[in-house]
Amino acid sequence: MAILEVEHISKNFEDTEVLKDISFSLEKGEVLSIIGSSGSGKTTFLRCLNFLEQPDTGVIRVGGETLFDASVRQSQQEAEIRRKRLHFGLVFQSFNLFPQYTALGNVMLARELLAKEQPDYKARKKEIYQEIEEEAKALLRQMGLGERMENYPHQLSGGQCQRVAIARALALKPDILCFDEPTSALDPELTGEVLKVIKELADKKTTMIIVTHEMAFAHDVASKVIFMDEGMILEQGTPQEVFEHTQQERTKQFLSRYTNG
């Protein structure tokens, strides 16, 4: 069964249609790359999945559970939305690390706050804290940041910041991890180190949705590629289908800029 099902999502900002009838599904362990020019709605789509925007129509289901259905008037309780959000993780283009916390603090903060809601929190406080700390440290080591745990974001390079942000998102064990142009703010060298950890996550069968302009990366890592243009899915399929046996003229035109440049 598909872990993520998206049906007929559309979204308007005042008069402009940003998303038009987006539908697709994703299997557990798959990596989906969304490509397309700026302003094609890729980011807005990720924001809809993470409940930062609310779609005007459509349904979003994760593991068979309907998280969002525009046709049903839902009581948009904050607690409810928070719970649903935890199915997804989001890594931002601009990292958005919390500057007053160390790398380790950034990874631990949300988990600690969530743990306080557990019924047995008071009784097992120390234990829970240690557990969270151990997991956070393991994640940072996995990101190659074992030596950087006590550093503050301003003491880290952009690539290191982004890897902290990835660890921070992973700490909550989301079903689906989303990346919004994770390397667009980085120079080519730093881009490489971030793509490397994303590739490692893909090898571990982490379900991911990656909005990216790194075509070679999308080609190598993704199991599925979607090309978006003007808020619509113009083409979707395996990397081979989209990159090598391109059907649509618009897609060819878009991809030619990357192969020629």
């Binding site: 993470n50 409940f51 930062l52 904050e78 607690a79 928070r82 719970r83 959000r85 935890l86 997804f88 993780g89 989001l90 931002f92 601009s94 958005n96 690390l97 919390f98 500057p99 007053q100 903060l109 949300a110 706050l113 969530l114 921070r168 998102a169 909550l172």
Partner: peptide
Amino acid sequence: VGQEEAGLVLGMTKRQIFFKVKLLQ
């Protein structure tokens, strides 16, 4: 705004975001 959004995506409440993330900044 990214600070608030990062907090939201991590499942934090508005209150937690204000006190734990934004206030000191």
